[in-house]
């Protein structure tokens, strides 16, 4: 089937993301990539756990002294909600409702930006209030590498959504861009999966000790 073919909501296939060969390959390749990402984040988590609270002197702050749960809670809610809004976007994608899909993706991007804003505030706070920097201790390096890598993924995810939205804003849905939107939303969910472990392992377990 031609990827530029125009559909209606009645002729739109049930799984548009996997109807074309390109879509199928994209889908498979993307999950392969996620398997690799899992390993990448595992090594960062392992490094963090091994180096947590490893500071050169008593003047350095430890995890339990710095972390503020209300802030982390707000960030968690923002990212979790953005995961749901991108599910809504894919729901409308499958129903061939391009406008609603765009609206929900824009909401997702907004929530992601809010999350990023809080994270920047948090890092800025640690650096200026507690002198907890990337080079101040092994703990600092491990913390900023792990959480910063996740933040970097959020930036890439936001850029991905925005580029897709701008690039396809006037095109409408077809079998060429449906897999692209679908894969971007999978990536966004994966970012949320990683965050679930970050707020659990880094922040909550960090507060417990």
């Amino acid at each position: 089937m031609d990827t530029q073919h125009k559909f209606t909501s009645r002729t739109w296939p049930e799984s548009p993301e996997k109807t074309t060969l390109e879509g199928k390959n994209k889908f498979l390749g993307f999950w392969l990539f996620l398997g690799g990402e899992t390993v990448l984040f595992a090594s960062l988590f392992a490094t963090y756990l091994a180096l947590k609270d490893k500071v050169p002197s008593d003047s350095h702050k430890l995890a339990a002294d710095m972390f503020e749960l209300p802030l982390v809670f707000i960030m968690t809610m923002l990212l979790l909600t953005s995961s749901l809004t991108s599910v809504y976007a894919m729901y409308h994608m499958k129903n061939y409702n391009f406008q609603k899909m765009k609206t929900w993706l824009i909401i997702t991007v907004g929530l992601g930006l809010a999350f990023l804003g809080f994270e920047i505030y948090e890092f800025n706070h640690y650096v200026h209030e507690y002198e907890h920097t990337f080079t101040s201790s092994a703990f600092g390096s491990a913390f900023y590498t792990l959480v910063g890598f996740h933040g970097g993924h959020v930036v890439i995810g936001l850029g991905w959504f925005l580029l897709l939205l701008i690039r396809n804003s006037k095109r409408g849905l077809d079998l060429y861009n449906a897999p692209k939107f679908f894969v971007a939303s999978l990536y966004w969910h994966f970012i949320d999966v990683v965050w679930v472990f970050i707020f659990t392992v880094v922040y909550l377990m960090g507060m417990v000790g």
């Binding site: 996997k18 392969l32 690799g36 899992t38 595992a42 392992a46 756990l49 091994a50």
Partner: peptide
């Protein structure tokens, strides 16, 4: 349906992830 290969990739990743964390923790501690 159609996520069998996907599950294989992901669980392989999770398995290696588990081994990685276990290795780091046991070597350091």
């Amino acid at each position: 349906k159609g996520h069998e290969g996907v599950a294989l990739f992901l669980y392989t990743g999770v398995f290696i992830a588990f081994i990685t964390i276990l290795t780091f923790l046991t070597i350091v501690w």
